[in-house]
Structures are given as structure tokens and as C-alpha cells.
Design a protein around this nucleic acid. Structure first.
Length: 210
DNA sequence: ACATTAAGTGATT
DNA sequence: AATCACTTAATGT
């Protein structure tokens, strides 16, 4: 596991910190689809993503959800960070988009390292920043983009995090992620297929050119 | 063969 | 862009 740590975080952190992470962190492997954080959960440890991708969702009242952004390896979850510091409940849900490997760091260590290691502090601040940027991007997408553009972005992101241009997803699942109806998704996808940008199959979508 | 689930489509708001 | 109503196609038992 030491190798994986170095591979993904070695260029960021000094050896001493990596050593501590290796000792204290607990590796957690999760399967695709498993829920890592539920809304209203209290967070007791910080996940650092070693491998795979995590999907971050916002949910309204009951059932209706919306994808905010994805987290890939080398990243951490900003929500977790703010929750630990403020000891607050999670406002979001985190679901494993693919099979994933996480390194879990206890909250106490996370705050202690903030003082002890400059590289850690920078990592946290930097991570906060990039998550905030992604949030802005998500807002722009919803507010200014039409459904066809939103869908394209969704497919692009999905293909990127799964490192595969054959996406295993149904029209219904996409509709839920984008908070729209299945019929609309089917129509737009059909249009994209006619433009030869994608190819449609049952339960699958092949990305040709985005 | 039948039931279930995914996807396609016209019409309406 | 959403909803309804209906059809067609694929898959499971």
C-alpha cells in the first residue's frame, strides 16, 4: 500500500508525512455503487482517493437528486473537510462511481497535520479551491446550459472518470443524475446518435466524439 | 410463452 | 423541457 501512496501523493507530501499516513491511515475498498457518505451523516474520517472515482450528489426533500461533481484519485472530499472542522452533518451524498480504494484518515490527525505539515495544509486549501471551482461549474451548467449541452458534459465527465468510452448506464439513471425525465434524456441521446457523436445500446452508451 | 424492464415517439402543455 | 400515453425491443423466468 506504501507504493500506492507514493504513486498518488508522493509528489505532494514529504516522506515523514507519507510515513505517518502509512501508519495511521486505514485502507478501505468499496465496490461500485456503494454509498460512502449519506446526507446527515457525521464524518469521523477523511477519505483520500487512491483509485477509482466518487460521485457527489445533492438531494432535495425526497428522492430527487442531482450530480454535483466527481472526485478522482489524488483528491479528497471538501465536504468531509468542512464537516469535520465544524462538526456538522453532511449536506451531500457520496457514491462510488467505480470500484474504488480509499485511505481513511481520522479527523484528529487531519487537524494536527494542518499545523505540522505545510504540504498538507496546502493540499487541503488547494483541494478546497478546486472543489469550489467545480461547484461553480456545476451551477453554470444548470443555469446556462441547455439539456443537450448538459448531457454532453455528463457523458464526457463519466467517460473520463471511468476511463472507458463504453458507459454502462440507462437513460433512467442519467435522468436521475441530471434531475430531468427519462423521456427527455432518450430524445437528446437519440439526437446525439444521429449526429454520430455517440452510439446507443441497451444499458450502454458508446462515446464516439464529444 | 409470459412478465418485466429499457428505450422510442407523437401529441399536449 | 416536462408529462402522458402508447409502442417496440430486449431480457429474465
Amino acid at each position: 500500500m506504501k507504493e500506492e501512496l507514493i504513486e498518488n501523493y508522493g509528489y505532494l507530501f514529504e516522506d515523514e508525512l507519507l510515513e505517518e499516513m502509512n501508519e495511521i491511515g486505514v485502507i478501505r475498498e468499496v465496490r461500485e455503487g456503494s454509498v460512502l457518505i449519506e446526507i446527515d451523516d457525521y464524518i469521523k474520517s477523511i477519505p483520500l482517493l487512491i483509485d477509482g472515482a466518487i460521485k457527489i450528489l445533492r438531494e432535495d426533500g425526497l428522492g430527487e437528486e442531482l450530480v454535483l461533481y466527481y472526485i478522482e484519485k489524488g483528491d479528497t472530499c471538501a465536504m468531509t473537510l468542512s464537516c469535520c472542522v465544524g462538526n456538522a452533518k453532511s449536506e451531500i451524498r457520496a457514491v462510488a462511481e467505480t470500484d474504488a480504494t480509499l485511505l481513511m484518515i481520522p479527523v484528529e490527525k487531519m487537524t494536527a497535520w494542518m499545523h505540522k505539515y505545510k504540504s498538507w495544509q496546502e493540499f487541503i486549501v488547494q483541494s478546497y479551491h478546486s472543489r469550489l471551482m467545480e461547484m461553480l461549474e456545476a451551477i453554470d451548467t444548470i443555469a446556462f446550459l441547455k439539456m443537450d449541452e448538459r448531457l454532453l458534459k455528463y457523458l464526457r465527465d463519466k467517460a473520463m472518470v471511468s476511463h472507458d468510452d463504453m458507459l454502462h448506464v440507462t437513460h433512467n439513471e442519467i435522468a436521475q443524475d441530471l434531475h430531468t425525465s427519462r423521456v427527455v434524456v432518450s430524445r437528446v441521446l437519440k439526437k446525439l446518435e444521429k449526429e454520430s457523436r455517440i452510439e446507443l445500446f441497451r444499458n450502454k452508451i458508446k462515446v464516439i466524439d464529444l
